[in-house]
Design a protein around this nucleic acid. Structure first.
Length: 492
RNA sequence: CGGGGUGUAGCGUAGCCCGGUAUCGCGCCACGUUUGGGACGUGGAGGCCGUCAGUUCGAAUCUGGCCACCCCGACCA
């Protein structure tokens, strides 16, 4: 198989696609817009899940599972939510097939098996969950209700891209219910912090935390908080969202609780989610023209050992040392693969593990056996050095930490370098076209202006950063007064 | 969903204008030599040419429908 990757500079989008396919992360499937996540890709997703799941549990949440199907009558209960997702829903209308009398061997939908009520394949689960919560919540003693589910959802997108936008995708969605508005807002922000912590400290992708404008808000939310990351090509990617849902769903599904002083009150809600889109963010943030670069904390294999030898005896001699190193590293909790396959040569393996993004590679040959050394190569910098076997476990433990830090710092510098303040619409357009990246500019706060800027430049307000610096200025588009800069970018 | 492009072995391709069942490279299998950055030799296997229909004695090649993918829009996590 040709492993030639398209260069980022030649065609970034083609590079991304090539990389996903060639690093064996995912593949297109027989279903339009739906991908097959292959073992190499799924292993990274599993590591993400494992880490996030622990973070959710550490903040008091528990997992549950709700149905894939939502009866249409429930789906439409919260009007804004229903309206927002209506255009991209898959709908089940029948429950049976039959053999087609006109086409032997073919099946047809049995017209007699039409459902009384259509079922919507969930694009998000607020409706079915809030309908369920109604039966679970009676008293303030039942609150807060802190539930997460790992699930698949379907959004019938016009145009799809592996991981970034697929018709079916995997995600987690947290759905919580609270007695007070304040508590729900604290929860919303807490989960945003959890996401930011995960994306920055595990994925090594720096993010801007902020709040969405009304235009960009989740359908059915009072406020949508988000984390926005900048990819290598200067386009923004929404990496996670946390919604304060107010009492919208409580009212739509009539979920009330009795307070201590025996009054009926609607509960306050949040929902929050991250999806397999994070895989896209991970890939686009760190990878290079040689292939994938996986941050050590999420790498299914943190270290690979490649033996270099002549003949069976040679392999046996190298293997003694390699297995010893493997054991020492495993004792430190490091995941190690010793690739002693005789079917591929060392050079082939080097290239292969670079393509697959393994953070650290150790090569051991005769020369090393004589000197008590190994060759150590790091994926992030593509540098190699010869080091003593003595104390290699501690050295690699430190190296993995260094790589993790380096990847984050590198991405952070890039993001800072690609963040520009502008004060005129001319500069705004110029920066978007020539420099790309985040653009901080004054905005008059109206949806109309936001919409016009989007129409003319394809840039959207990614968020109003949290703890945003307040400064007086004038809107770059309308010239009206403004109190702060907001974060614009062209986005995925 | 609109505009443009592509579809030939696992991957990348030649052939298509001027109809006669297919070229080359990589990969794959066997054996041997090799092994410190994608090895080499010899032999071999693998294709109803995206799919369905039409024209024709005969279709990868001509015509039409459909499907998938890529690029640009609209929509979106």
């Amino acid at each position: 198989m040709s492993k030639e990757l398209t260069k980022r500079a030649d065609d970034y989008s083609k590079w991304y696609n090539d990389l996903v396919l060639k690093a064996d992360l995912a593949d297109h499937s027989a279903v339009r817009g739906c991908m097959v996540i292959k073992p190499s890709g799924y292993a990274i997703w599993e590591n993400m899940q494992k880490t996030l799941d622990k973070m959710f549990k550490d903040t008091g949440h528990v997992n549950a599972y709700f149905p894939l199907f939502i009866p249409k009558s429930l789906f439409e209960a919260e009007e804004k939510n229903a309206e927002g997702f209506a255009k991209e829903c898959a709908i089940v209308t029948h429950y049976r097939l039959k053999t087609d009398p006109d086409n032997p061997g073919k099946l047809m939908v049995d017209p007699d098996a039409k459902l009384e009520e259509e079922l919507i394949v969930r694009p998000t689960s607020e409706a079915i969950i809030w309908n369920t919560y109604k039966g679970w919540i009676q008293s303030y003693r039942d609150l807060p209700l802190l539930i997460n589910q790992w699930a698949n959802v379907v959004r019938w997108e016009m145009r799809t891209r592996l991981f970034l936008r697929t018709a079916e995708f995997l995600w987690q969605e947290g759905h919580t219910a609270h007695a007070t508005k304040e508590e729900a807002i604290i929860e919303t922000k807490q989960m945003l912090d959890v996401y930011a912590d995960f994306v920055e400290n595990w994925m090594a992708v720096p993010v801007v935390k902020g709040v969405k404008t009304a235009n960009e808000r989740f359908a059915g939310a009072d406020d949508t908080y988000c984390i926005e990351a900048l990819m290598q090509d200067g386009k923004a990617l929404q990496a996670g969202t946390s919604h304060f849902l107010g009492q919208n769903f409580a009212k739509a599904f009539d979920v009330k609780y009795v307070t201590k002083d025996n009054k009926q009150e609607y509960v306050w809600a949040t929902s929050w989610g991250v999806s397999t889109r994070l895989m896209g963010a991970l890939i686009m943030s760190h990878s290079d023209d040689h292939g994938l670069v996986i941050p050590p904390k999420l790498a299914p294999n943190q270290v690979v050992i490649v033996p270099i030898y002549k003949g069976d005896d040679g392999l046996a001699r190298v293997s003694v040392v390699a297995n010893d190193i493997k054991k020492k590293l495993q004792a430190k909790g490091i995941t190690v693969k010793y690739d002693d396959r005789d079917s591929q040569r060392p050079g082939w393996k080097f290239a292969e593990y670079e393509l697959k993004g393994v953070p650290v590679r150790i090569a051991i040959g005769e020369r090393d056996l004589a000197n008590g050394t190994v060759e150590l190569a790091r994926r992030d910098t593509l540098t190699k050095e010869t080091v003593s076997i003595e104390g290699i476990d501690s050295l690699i433990e430190q190296l993995l930490t260094d790589i993790q830090t380096n990847l984050f710092e590198r991405a952070k510098q890039r993001t800072q370098q690609l963040t520009t303040k502008v004060d005129s619409f001319e500069d705004f357009k110029k920066v978007l076209d020539e420099k790309t990246g985040f653009v901080l500019a004054h905005w008059d706060g109206t949806p109309e202006t936001e919409e016009k800027i989007k129409d003319e430049t394809k840039a959207t307000i990614r968020c109003i950063p949290l703890n945003n610096e307040q400064e007086t200025g004038i809107c770059i588009y309308s010239g009206k007064p403004s109190t702060q800069r907001v974060l614009f970018a062209r986005a995925y």
